Simulated assay, not measured.
Amino acid sequence: MTLVWFLAGLAALVVGAELLVRGASRLALAWGLSPLVVGLTVVAFGTSAPETAVSVGAVFSGRTDIAVGNVVGSNIFNVLFILGVSALIVPLTVARQVIRQEVPIMIGASVLLLALGLDGTLSRLDGLWLVGLLIAYTAALVIQSRREAAAQAPSDDSSAGHAGGHWAVQLLLVIGGLALLVLGSRWLVDAAVTMAQALGVSDLVIGLTVVAAGTSLPEVATSVMAAVRGQRDIAVGNVVGSCTFNLLGCLGLSALLGPQGLTVAASLLHFDIWVMIAVAFACLPFFFTGRQIARWEGAVFLAYYAAYTAYLVLRAQHHDALPAFSHMMLGFVLPLTLITIVVSVIRPSARQAPPAG
């Protein structure tokens, strides 16, 4: 029955996120937001609602390791797996705004989590700072998008009333989606904890793997379908926006609502958060290479995620091969970061030189 409840919770999260995204994105388009900003805000925040619901629910259940591990694992999954799969389907074109503004913000939020968690906790004050930064970031995006829309098409106001039907219908979709997310998160967290105890696996590992991948399924479906339909701004913006929201909104709310904030496990500080920061930096060179994520680059992302998952499994089992694999994985973070810096410096000039002539 534990597996049944887990799958039921997962299904409720996916359906709830779909309803939330559909209603909220149509409302946002009616307000004159661009597809990229819709992907970065409404779609990204909506598809990240399962992570928020699960992490907040885990905090109230006293399982803070799941709350923090879920966010770190989801961000690693979002970049390496979702962008990797989407790029394998069709090469992803990346908007200049994502390169110049959104990815640096995602990297900054990742580094901020490390800085705030160095003392082993995310206090309520830390949570307040994170939520405040999210509100400021979202407001800046909306203002920026509306200004650009007004400058490009000041007379195009007629479409605002037809962006998907009456606003009350979209509002009902949002409310129904939120209700399913709350219910599904409770089922999924309870089942995941039971599975962890039965298998002898820690809450942290379950949060980094099973829960992280499960709550990221809405992002998988959204980005893959957007890539197939040619809505590449939404495909990439969804991933980048979700990562930023997970760090600022999901962890911020969890720390703010927790009785004593959140405990940040030592293993996260020593390894997993560094991997998350490394993969955030890894976006830069791939995005700079002609502002496109090619299929081979998507394959590289997937290979990195497979290696990271293998490490987590070995670590959870205290396998004899763990020391050797650990040395290999320790060589993963620094080389990946160095490669991103070198490629981001060399390849843009090579790609941008011909058009300039």
Score class of each variant (00 low, 15 high):
Ala11Tyr: 03
Trp296Glu: 06
Ala294Cys: 13
Leu338Arg: 12
Pro104Gln: 02
Ala151Met: 11
Gly214Thr: 07
Ile175Pro: 08
Gln170Ala: 14
Leu322His: 03
Ile277Gln: 05
Leu134Trp: 08
Trp31Val: 11
Phe271Leu: 09
Leu178Lys: 04
Val21Gln: 01
Thr41Gln: 07
Glu219Arg: 01
Leu20Ala: 05
Ala150Cys: 15
Ala28Tyr: 00
Trp296Lys: 06
Thr263Lys: 15
Leu13Ser: 08
Leu36Asn: 00
Val264Leu: 14
Ala350Val: 14
Val169His: 14
Ala28Gly: 01
Gly237Arg: 00
Ala150Glu: 10
Phe325Ile: 09
Val264Met: 10
Val4Tyr: 09
Phe325Met: 08
Val85Trp: 00
Ser267Met: 12
Arg147Val: 12
Pro323Val: 08
Asp203Asn: 15
Ala58Trp: 04
Ala299Trp: 08
Thr121Cys: 09
Ile82Pro: 01
Gly290Asn: 01
Val98Ala: 08
Val21Ser: 04
Ala140His: 12
Val111His: 08
Met106Phe: 06
Val345Thr: 11
Leu247Ser: 10
Gly164Trp: 02
Met195Thr: 15
Pro91Met: 06
Asp65Val: 04
Met106Arg: 04
Glu219Ile: 00
Leu173Ala: 14
Leu7Asp: 10
Val211Thr: 02
Pro104Thr: 04
Thr2Cys: 08
Ala321Pro: 13
Ala226Met: 06
Val15Ser: 12
Leu3Met: 03
Leu269Lys: 09
Val239Lys: 01
Ile66Glu: 03
Ala109Tyr: 06
Met329Gly: 01
Leu13His: 04
Leu118Cys: 07
Ala306Arg: 06
Ala266Asn: 15
Ile206Met: 15
Thr194Leu: 11
Ala17Gly: 10
Ala11Lys: 04
Asp320Lys: 11
